[in-house]
Amino acid sequence: MTALEDVTFPSPSPPTDSIGLHLRWLDFLRGAVLRKALGVTDEQARWRPDGKLLPLVGLVNHLTNVERRWIDGVMLGGSTFKDPLEYEAPALPIDVVITAYRERAVATAGAVRSLGDLDTRSPGGEYDLRFVLLHLINETARHAGHADAVRELLDGTVGE
């Protein structure tokens, strides 16, 4: 199995429930991010064009932590601590960061399904699950484009 074949996130075909639709779009976008992060060395994963943009390892690590903060933190009442180094992930190999992102995807889906309804509000009542999922979809889409640009500048890889 090649690295690209290992990306198992489905296309966003319509499921029968609203939560499923949101999770499918999030999965689809995660796949776009992972296709850009797979197949690079740790050195390439830390590369930044002219010191600009974020490195691939930082993008994937950031997205993992965004999901943790919004799902476990905001929606489940846990910590919303943001590590100032999450964008660089200085000590983490890319394969460790990718594994953590995949594990977070499973944890996010489980937590979202356990909340049961898009109208479920956060413990403080400030957000509902619909807002949080749309925020995660938006954040992941933005960074999928960012990863696409970094990878193309890194080694010319385009598409997917």
Rank of each mutant, 00 (worst) to 15 (best):
A3V: 05
E5F: 09
E5N: 05
D6W: 03
V7W: 12
P12K: 02
P12R: 04
P12N: 06
S13A: 10
S13R: 03
S13L: 06
P14G: 07
P15W: 13
P15R: 09
P15G: 12
D17I: 14
D17G: 11
D17C: 08
I19P: 01
G20V: 08
H22E: 03
H22A: 07
H22R: 13
H22F: 06
R24K: 13
W25M: 07
L26G: 01
L26C: 06
L26H: 05
F28G: 01
L29Y: 11
L29E: 01
G31R: 06
G31K: 02
L34K: 04
R35L: 08
R35N: 03
K36D: 12
T41N: 06
T41H: 14
D42F: 02
E43G: 10
Q44Y: 06
A45N: 00
P49S: 00
L53K: 10
L54E: 03
P55E: 08
V57Y: 01
G58D: 05
L59Y: 00
L59Q: 10
V60M: 09
H62S: 07
E67P: 00
E67K: 11
E67Q: 12
R68W: 08
R68G: 07
W70A: 04
I71S: 05
G73N: 03
V74K: 13
M75N: 08
G77I: 14
G77L: 12
G77R: 10
T80W: 04
T80N: 15
K82R: 14
D83P: 12
P84T: 06
L85F: 09
E86S: 05
E86W: 04
E88N: 07
P90C: 06
P90H: 08
P90W: 04
L92A: 14
P93G: 08
P93Y: 05
P93N: 08
P93I: 02
D95W: 13
V96H: 13
V96S: 12
V97R: 01
I98H: 06
I98D: 01
T99D: 13
Y101W: 15
Y101R: 05
Y101L: 11
R102Y: 11
R104W: 09
A105N: 12
V106L: 11
T108E: 09
T108N: 06
A109R: 10
G110K: 05
G110C: 03
V112T: 00
V112Y: 00
S114K: 11
S114V: 07
L115S: 00
D117V: 10
L118R: 09
D119I: 13
T120E: 10
R121D: 13
S122D: 11
S122H: 15
P123L: 14
P123F: 11
G124F: 10
G124R: 15
G125C: 14
G125P: 06
G125Y: 15
Y127S: 13
Y127I: 05
R130M: 04
F131S: 06
V132K: 02
L134E: 14
I137P: 01
N138G: 07
E139H: 15
T140Y: 00
A141E: 01
A147Y: 08
D148G: 09
D148M: 08
A149K: 11
V150H: 08
V150T: 14
R151V: 07
D155I: 01
G156V: 04
E160C: 07
